[in-house]
């Protein structure tokens, strides 16, 4: 055991190297299999039919536009909620809060990240949606907005931890410089620290968006899943159906190889592309600013 065996060293090195490259392999494999199962949809359904506004797969209406708009409006709503809350909480934790408050707040936010989304979905059905119906006088609380609220909650921990990392990474000398010039703590945060951390904050938002648009179970439980084209601001308070919920709800039903099956995989391709775009955008910012963002990506 003590004596190094040359061939053994080489094999282990190769194995480790192969493991390293496996990440690329997996992304490629995922892409490949989505394409393999999803691209036939383009041959079976006319492209113009795919971009139609009616989704009713059991009668061969495969318009995915309502699903895309549904995902988008819920994500936008979630960001409107999670962005101010997440950034404010990050600033509060990293710049203002006394040490003991910080010690309490951080694990609490992480706790939220660890709650399975199915459980949030149940709370959504039992508490959030009835509350929204009475408070906002909606026909039903099962709406895009209920989904946005839950997704906001799911995205907040991501945003808080990445934004906080970014704020922490701002050199102390920046702040000291600002204070020396007579700026208050608030002015320093607003005019110096936050702008200096902006690339990290941007990453936080991008990844929050990624997290929100990919969320499935909670959304499926509270948004009502009605495939309505959501293009007016009012749609936020009406039921909506997302791409993820559609896949989760319908995939089990279809016979493999059917048109419906291929279209669901096609929706998977769309989701994959969106997450790819969001993550590449986010990671290019990360690399420039060499933040520790990867760790919190989960």
């Amino acid at each position: 055991m003590q004596k190094p065996l040359h061939w053994r060293e080489i094999i282990i090195t190769r194995l480790i190297q192969a493991s390293g490259y496996s990440a690329i392999l997996f992304v490629a494999a995922i892409f490949l299999f989505l394409m393999r199962e999803g691209l036939p949809a383009l041959g079976e359904v006319k492209f113009s039919d795919l971009l139609a506004v009616r989704w009713y797969p059991i009668e061969a209406y495969f318009g995915i536009l309502p699903l895309i708009t549904g995902s988008l409006i819920i994500t936008i709503g979630a960001m409107l909620i999670a962005f101010p809350l997440g950034i404010a909480t990050a600033v509060y934790i990293s710049e203002i809060a006394p040490r003991w408050v910080r010690e309490i707040l951080k694990p609490l936010v992480e706790l939220l990240a660890g709650l399975p989304s199915v459980m949030l979905g149940f709370l959504g059905i039992l508490v959030v949606s009835p509350f929204l119906r009475t408070a906002l006088d909606l026909p039903t609380g099962l709406s895009a907005f209920a989904g946005s609220l839950l997704l906001g909650g799911i995205a907040v921990p991501t945003i808080v931890s990445i934004a906080e990392d970014a704020l922490d990474a701002v050199p102390r000398s920046y702040r000291e410089g600002a204070w020396a010039l007579g700026a208050t703590k608030w002015q320093t945060i607003w005019r110096v620290t936050l702008p200096a951390a902006r690339s990290g904050v941007l990453t936080a938002i991008m990844l929050g968006i990624g997290r929100a648009i990919g969320e499935t179970m909670a959304v499926m439980m509270v948004t009502g899943n009605a495939p309505v084209l959501a293009i007016t601001p009012g749609s936020l308070f009406a039921p909506a159906r997302t791409m993820t919920a559609t896949i989760a709800a319908e995939m089990g039903e279809v016979a493999s190889g059917s048109t419906h099956y291929h279209v669901l995989f096609f929706i998977g391709i769309v989701l994959f592309m969106i997450s790819l775009a969001v993550n590449i955008a986010a990671s290019s910012v990360v690399f420039r600013a060499k933040k520790r963002a990867e760790r919190i990506l989960s």
Partner: peptide, 27 residues
């Protein structure tokens, strides 16, 4: 060839339907 109105809520479970009917007089 009548179809469900597009804004029909499609709930993934019986329980979801009953929970909503139980608390929503519009449903």
């Amino acid at each position: 060839k009548t179809l469900f109105a597009t804004n029909t809520l499609l709930l993934p479970s019986s329980e979801g339907i009953i929970a909503e009917v139980r608390q929503n007089p519009n449903a």
